[in-house]
């Protein structure tokens, strides 16, 4: 039977198949291509292959760049840049702290003056405001303005 089938043409094969299924009382076979679930020649199933790909995304293998090797001159350059940046940061920090210190002193002096001038008002002002938070409506500055820059149509509730 096998040796004979090798010599048959396609059309002959098909007619033979239908006649066989009819003779055995079976429904004709329909060829449907579905998702591949069996391993290919490599021996890895598609599921395993997917996991391998996903893991390799996270792994450092083959994806890490070469280590930076700086010459003496480049190293000095890098250190100079870093020092300049930290100096700049220090100056800014110092300025900010000085401004804050001055503001604290002025608030302190104003409260002293208020205590002497209007003790009742001072009592209203001198309350603990710990836990006060910024409102949700306060917008954080961004790199570029929004389409509607200011909300003018606010109505009092």
């Amino acid at each position: 039977m096998l040796s004979r089938s090798a010599n048959l043409t396609k059309a002959e094969c098909a007619s033979l198949a239908t006649s066989t299924t009819k003779a055995l009382g079976l429904a004709p076979r329909v060829q449907v291509r579905t998702k591949r679930t069996k391993a290919k020649a490599s021996g890895i199933t598609p599921q395993t292959q997917r996991i391998i790909t996903q893991l390799s995304v996270m792994s450092a293998r083959k994806k890490q760049p070469r280590m930076l090797k700086l010459s003496q001159e480049d190293l000095v350059k890098h250190q100079t840049i870093q020092t300049a940046w930290h100096t700049y940061q220090d100056i800014q920090k110092h300025q900010r702290q000085e401004a804050l210190k001055l503001q604290f002193q002025k608030t302190d002096a104003a409260m002293d003056l208020l205590q002497r001038a209007a003790p009742d008002v001072y009592r209203h002002a001198n309350v603990d405001e710990q836990g006060k938070v910024f409102p949700m409506e306060l917008r954080v500055p961004t790199d570029f303005p929004p389409r509607k820059v200011w909300y003018y149509d606010y109505k009092k509730e």
Binding site: Q103, T107, A109, A110, L114, H124, K132, E137, K156
Partner: peptide, 25 residues
């Protein structure tokens, strides 16, 4: 009335004593 504000603090941030004796907080 149609203005939404948020007061930073109840405490004054500074005061000015004018020559006529009036105080500005």
């Amino acid at each position: 009335e149609n203005i939404n504000t948020w007061t930073v603090s109840k405490k004054p941030v500074g005061a000015i004593e004018s020559k006529d004796g009036s105080l500005d907080f």
